[in-house]
Every structure is written in structure tokens, then in C-alpha cells.
Nucleic acid binder design. Sequence first.
RNA 1: CGGGGCGUGGCGCAGCCUGGUAGCGCGCCUGUUUUGGGUACAGGAGGUCGUGGGUUCGAGUCCCGCCGCCCCGACCA
Length: 485
Amino acid sequence: MCTAQFSGVTYAAPAVPSNRLDHQPRSDYRANAIRTPAPTLERNSNTMRLSHGFVPTLKETPSEAQIASHRLMLRAGLVRQTSAGIYAWLPLGLRVLRNIERIVREEQDIAGAQEILMPTIQPAELWRESGRYDDYGKEMLRIRDRHDRDMLYGPTNEEMVTDLFRQAVKSYRELPQILYHIQWKFRDEVRPRFGVMRGREFLMKDGYSFDLDQAGAVLSYRKMMLAYMRTFQRMGLKAIPMEADTGPIGGDLSHEFIILAPTGESQVYFDAAFEEMDYLSGAGGSSHEKPEDLDRFFKQMTTHYAATDEKHDAARWEQVAPTRRREGRGIEVGHIFYFGTRYTKAMNTTVTGPDGKLVHPEMGSYGIGVSRLVGAVIEAGHDDAGIIWPDSIAPYKAAIINLKIGDATCDGLCETLYAALNGNAVYDDRSDRAGAKFADADLMGHPWQVIVGPRGAAAGKVELKRRATGERSEVTPEEALARIG
RNA sequence: CGGGGCGUGGCGCAGCCUGGUAGCGCGCCUGUUUUGGGUACAGGAGGUCGUGGGUUCGAGUCCCGCCGCCCCGACCA
């Protein structure tokens, strides 16, 4: 719809971009801009001009930040720390967080999980019932309300979801159920560190499955495992499920999902087979529906060797063909496990079975560290200049860099591009020098940079730069828009 | 929770040892300049020196308490 805008006379600078106009009625908004897209309800989505955006980038690294993702998140203006392990999310960071949430949510829904939203504050009563109120220790933030009731800021939600379940579900006919929510949690870590990767307050997707029997629970477990592999692949991450400690229950139904990142916290060993797997195409029979597909998928996930250094088994490692051995560093971004009737028994939760007898449903729980993923993705994708976002979760698809603010041709072209990208681009309209803008664009890591300078603009060309590869090309504005997509 | 370190303008730091009324770089504001990878010059704004107490004629500096933050380890999504 924007193609026609680029021909002939239309480059005249609209006399507009003062941010003040953003507060005027919509009908006046950018009245002079050339054929701006039709007004939408998301008026503010088109207002990311760096001259007025709340994107406090830093040239120097704050002294508290040590690892790459923490440094870059602070420097790129994604977050600010408010106290140890607790962060405020600024516009750019929040957009990334929302994008990750979106993918997680879509994949949970595809897998048949149902979204709910449980509170952050929970009554101590539920935790006394499961016995964890005393067990949990100082990591649990305990609060007392005005009536002197014991409350707590939830570190996880097994008790609460079990309580919800037992109030509402009475028959095996209503099973299975998989409930999830994406909610802030708080664990009062002794030593928060690594920025959002190990904060005290963190955003987590936690899901809980309820099945009539263990066979059903295993199926739910496998559905979630598939959902996780799809989720991480969509974020551009190479994730590998690794066997984790199952505690007293035993078996092989606990996996942590490790993504590969050179600066990861733990050493990991795995078979090259994981590098080649594709969970999105569906070609590998990766369906959530058919038990036999899930079975095949699960075998695929568990027959190849994969272990963190704590669980590394040198003997089994030796059996992997040397050319297929892979070692690296990894970050845990998800964890799923089956725990049977641990909570349904403790909390007297039953449904009526087919034979009329009461049974305790079998449960599993499934977590993804949503806020942690923001840091983990950066650990997996950055260079000396800054962040390199995967397209699927980048805060914006592109940065439009105006090299000569005040030049009518540059201004006009940038405005047109900005309008055409309709909320998917940041526009660097600051009156800084080119170098500062390039540096900030690289730092913020948008997948594309559209560089608009006086020379090219006069010839109707812009420069398109791909952040990940550094590859640049002179293209027409239309082509730039087409490539950005 | 054990061990270590640090709190001085928005960010990075010096000053503390050897007390004398706060400084540098970046950023910010104004002007000129520059114009494709963090420009140069000039002028300017901005600081309860984390906090409470003590010593002293005088404390950013010395002493004691407290708070906060970071690092290593143990622990953890």
C-alpha cells in the first residue's frame, strides 16, 4: 500500500514530527504525512521516535553488570534495576518480554493447555496443607496482612492450582486438564545475579496437568515437551532436553531444557542429532494429537545422549560416535516434571473414576522462565557491538536511521518508511551524529537497519543492513520494506 | 549463608593512606563548528560525598553502628 508513495514529488518533508502532535486528536495526527496508514486504535504503536522515546541507552556499562546479557540489557535501555534482583521493564525490554510471552502462549494453546491467571499473593493456608509452608524456607517471601493473616508472594503455584482444580473438577470425564498461566513470581534468592537471568522477581509460565492415571500423565508430559521444543525453536534457540533429577519419584519424567550459549552457566554434552531436529514442520510426526506421534517424538528426544555436567556419564558418552559428540555451554530456560499424586493426596483432591471410586489425579508441572529467556536469548546472540535479536522476538523489526535530520529528502523518506512500517520500527530522529546512531542501532540489535543518508536519498535509495550478518545493500525504499516484511 | 569488594552529579571514575570546604571523562543545556561509525571549540546547569553517630577548630577523608549494591563459593527457574 505504500509503494506509490515513493515516486516523484512525495519526498517533501512533512512539517510534522514534533511529538507534541501525538497528543492531539487523531484526525490531526501527522496530517501532512504522505498517505499514512489508516488510523487504528493502536495509535501509540507508531510513536517510537528515539528523540522522544523512553530508551535510555548507555555508552558505558554500569559497574554492577558483569555478564553480557546484563550489560547489554542495561546499555540498550531494556531494563533498570530497582533493587537487588528486581527490575523495571522499559519500553524496548517490555516488547521483547511480550513477544516471548506471545510465542509461549500460542504454543501452549496449540498443545491444548488453557490459560488462566492466578494471583501473585497467596494465602499461607494452602501451603500449610501441602506441608510446604514450613519446608520452603527463606526463599519464600512471607507477608502479613492487616488482619494478621499469613500470606506469601508466590514462588510457584502447585497448591493454588490444585485448590482451583479440586473445587471445580469432580469426574474423570473432565480429564485431562492442562492449566497454565504467565505470572510474576518471587523467590528471595540469597544471591541474585546475572541480571534478569537470576532475579528474585521473575516472569514465568507455569503449567499444570491433571490426568486420571499415570499413562495419561505421561501423555500430557510428552505434549508439553513437544510444545517446549516448538516454543524454543520459534525463538531462534537451539534447545535440548536433558534428564534432570526426579527426586523421590524416580523414572525418566523430568527434563530441563537447556539452550546453547557460549557464556552459559553449565557445561553440556549432547549428540549432534539435536542440531538437526525440526519441530515446526510437522514432518517428524510432531503432532500433539496422536499418542503414537508423541511416543515417537519422545523416543527421539530421549534416545540420543544429552546431559549437563552434573549428570554426565562418561561411559555412555564414549558410545556416541566421536564425530557426533557436541560440547558447549548452556542455560536452563525450562523445566518439566511429573510428580504424580504428591499434591492431590496432600490436598485431598479426588475425582470420581469410571468405576465410581474416588481417585487422586496424577499431576505434572511445566515451567518456562519467560523473563530469564530475555537474558538467555541475548547470551545466545550478541557481539561486541550489542544485541542481535532473532526476528521473532525483536522489540522492533527495524531501526530507521536518518543520517541528516533537517534534510528535506531524508526527513521525508524516513517519515514515509516509518509510517509504512506501522509500529514495527523505531525511528532514530535524534540530532546526533551518524556514528552515535549506528552505535545505538547495533546496540539495540533490531534485525534490520534502514539507513537513510542524503546521497542515497537523492537517488531514491536507502541502505539496508542486516544486523546478524552485517550485510548491507543499496536498495529502493520499496525493496527495503519488502525485505523487512 | 561463609569469604571478599564497593557506595563521591545521569554513567564511568579520581580524591581518602598523609583532615583545610569537591574534581576528571562521558552524557545533558546554549552557541559556533562538523556531517556515513560515539566531531571540535567556547560557555553553562547539575553533587545532603549511602546513612546515623563520634573524634576534631575543621570530616568525602579518621573511628563505630546501620543500610544498599557487586563479586567468589554453597543454593536455585
